[in-house]
Design a binder for these strands. Structure first.
Length: 357
DNA sequence: AACACGTGGAA
DNA sequence: TTTCCAAGTGT
């Protein structure tokens, strides 16, 4: 066993956090926790893990749920494809694999939503397979201690870090080694202000020796953020509201929001209705009705988009709106109790909470 | 290979 | 305010 592995595990046993998914070898629970924790901090994911564990104690329970139920529980966590892929995979395992998880890295990798990291996590934590989990923490720790400056999001870098991690991994405790390396990155060798003074690797750390702690790991710059201008139509009719299911590609797939107009600029220019929508009924509606209220602008920041959002309130007679969207199956008229039960983008959820509940 | 895909917390 | 980025995956 390597000196590195011994020191790392020694540190881990002294400093590890007590997290619920660390007390089980159930691949279902480990899968659940790992998907939730993708690109997500423990503090943010923990309540969701507990809620899912309670709602769906077994993978059959998960498989028997509707996608809407799953998305509603997931509401607010972001990256909703994780929830949709989990539901797909739960049904797949329930129906085609006799509700038994695959028991090795190679087969786990075939599951939808399970990539290299998650397959390694389940394989090592649940089944003791010797395969390294290489996540953002691992990139950071290895790049610093061993002075590796290959970009962590380049093809070569990804390959190189995986090789290093799989060289270092403990023969006898691969699961503990993986947990330890990630935990060390998460709470000690942090992105900013790492605790170098009390670091067990302070002597041999290349980044420390070369005074490059702040430069490592190297990451190629990400794509730039685009601005979008959303105008939500909050159309009330007899204490019900028109709600729209988001279908197809793009953000918030499978979630519910309001009928939406999108413009190239901040203002919604009612003289350019033709440019806002193809929908004839909606055009007519906009021409014949004026909003009773227009909200302030909300800025909602996604990883790759800046959304500038206004809400336009309309209160209409039944006769006027009865056929407005009734022939389109992605639209439905719902009361507030029903709307509350639907999965929604967090900005919509917060808006409703502020003005309607 | 490069980009899409959420949200919230920290500095 | 801005920027980074957190237990990544799919296409």
């Amino acid at each position: 066993m390597s000196d590195f592995s011994n020191k790392l595990i020694e540190w881990y046993e002294l400093n590890k956090r007590d997290l619920p998914w660390r007390n089980t070898k159930d691949p279902y629970k480990i899968w659940l926790s790992e998907i939730i924790l993708q690109q997500t901090r423990v503090q943010q994911g923990l309540p969701y893990y507990l809620a899912f564990e309670e709602a769906f104690p077994t993978i059959q329970n998960f498989a028997n749920a509707t996608e809407e139920e799953v998305l509603r529980l997931w509401q607010g966590l972001g990256y909703y494809s994780r929830a949709r892929n989990m539901h797909f995979t739960a049904k797949h395992i329930s129906e085609n694999l006799s509700s038994e998880f695959p028991t090795n890295f190679k087969d786990l990798l075939k599951l939808k939503g399970v990539g290299n990291y998650t397959a390694a996590a389940i394989a090592s934590f649940a089944f003791g397979e010797k395969v390294a989990t290489v996540d953002g923490n691992v990139y950071r720790v290895l790049s610093r201690i061993f002075g590796i400056d290959s970009p962590i999001n380049s093809t070569n870098g990804i390959k190189e870090f995986a090789e290093v991690a799989n060289t270092l991994i403990s023969d006898t405790q691969p699961d503990t080694f993986n947990q330890a390396l990630m935990e060390f990155g998460a709470i000690h060798c942090t992105p900013k202000s790492p605790n170098c003074l009390h670091c067990p690797f302070v002597q041999e750390c290349e980044a420390r020796k070369q005074n490059r702690v702040g430069e490592l790991p190297v990451k190629l710059k990400k794509t730039k953020v685009t601005d979008r201008y959303f105008h939500y139509l909050v159309i009330e009719e007899n204490e019900k509201y028109w709600i729209k299911e988001r279908k197809g590609k793009g953000i918030w797939q499978g979630l519910y929001d309001f009928p939406l107009l999108e413009s190239d600029h901040k203002e919604l220019n009612l003289e350019n209705i033709d440019q806002l929508t193809e929908d004839l009924e909606l055009k007519t509606f906009l021409q014949e009705n004026a909003p009773s209220q227009i909200s302030e602008m909300y800025k909602h920041i996604l990883s790759h988009q800046r959304l500038h959002i206004h809400f336009y309130h309309y209160k209409v007679d039944i006769e006027k709106s009865v056929s407005l969207f009734s022939e389109k199956d992605e639209y439905s008229l719902m009361d507030l109790d029903n709307i509350e039960k639907q999965p929604k983008p967090i900005i919509i959820h917060n808006y409703l909470n502020t003005y309607f509940y």
